[in-house]
């Protein structure tokens, strides 16, 4: 096997955020991946989609399914995160009040991604962008 998909996520597009995660979930179900692993991937993917919509200038989600491992990459074109350690702290958030009123911006997105993935790497440069790589062992 060996399968990949790419999804664009636009900045500020909260209404359709979730589409990519649903398509990824459907594809993984078709591939016969166990539902427990799919749930973790779907949660991490949705958090990623919302993060791209809320915080980034726009970006992409890239899914790579290979024997033994699923990789989910999030890549955006800015604005980047000034202090990644702080951003990884549960409860820390820079989300606006309007985003918080929607039940987002609780400062749990990145920790949720890390907790659901088997491997988690984040690199970010202010003014350049953020890249996250999550792996899920099958």
């Amino acid at each position: 096997m060996g399968y990949n998909m790419t999804f664009d996520v636009e900045s500020g597009d909260f209404a359709t955020a979730g589409q990519a995660s649903r398509k990824i979930k459907k594809k993984l179900q078709d591939l016969g991946i166990s539902s427990k692993i799919i749930r973790r991937i779907a949660i991490a993917g949705y958090e990623g989609e919302m993060n791209l919509a809320i915080h980034s200038d726009g970006g992409q989600i890239l899914l790579d399914a290979e024997p033994g491992v699923i990789t989910l990459r999030l890549e955006d074109t800015g604005p980047g995160i000034g202090n990644v350690d702080l951003a990884m702290t549960e409860g820390w958030s820079t989300a606006s009040d309007s985003v918080r009123e929607m039940g987002f911006g609780a400062g749990m997105g990145l920790p949720n991604m890390r907790n659901n993935a088997d491997g988690f790497e984040i690199t970010s440069r202010p003014g350049v962008g953020t890249k996250i790589k999550m792996t899920f062992d099958l």
Binding site: F14, S35, Y46, M50, G103, N112, N116
Partner: peptide, 23 residues
């Protein structure tokens, strides 16, 4: 809090929430 719910709610649950937007 949607992140909290996603991380903790079980499949098959009835979810009680005051959030009403499409997400």
């Amino acid at each position: 809090l949607l992140s909290w719910v996603m991380g903790n709610a079980d499949a098959g649950c009835a979810w009680v929430t005051i959030q009403t937007h499409v997400n």
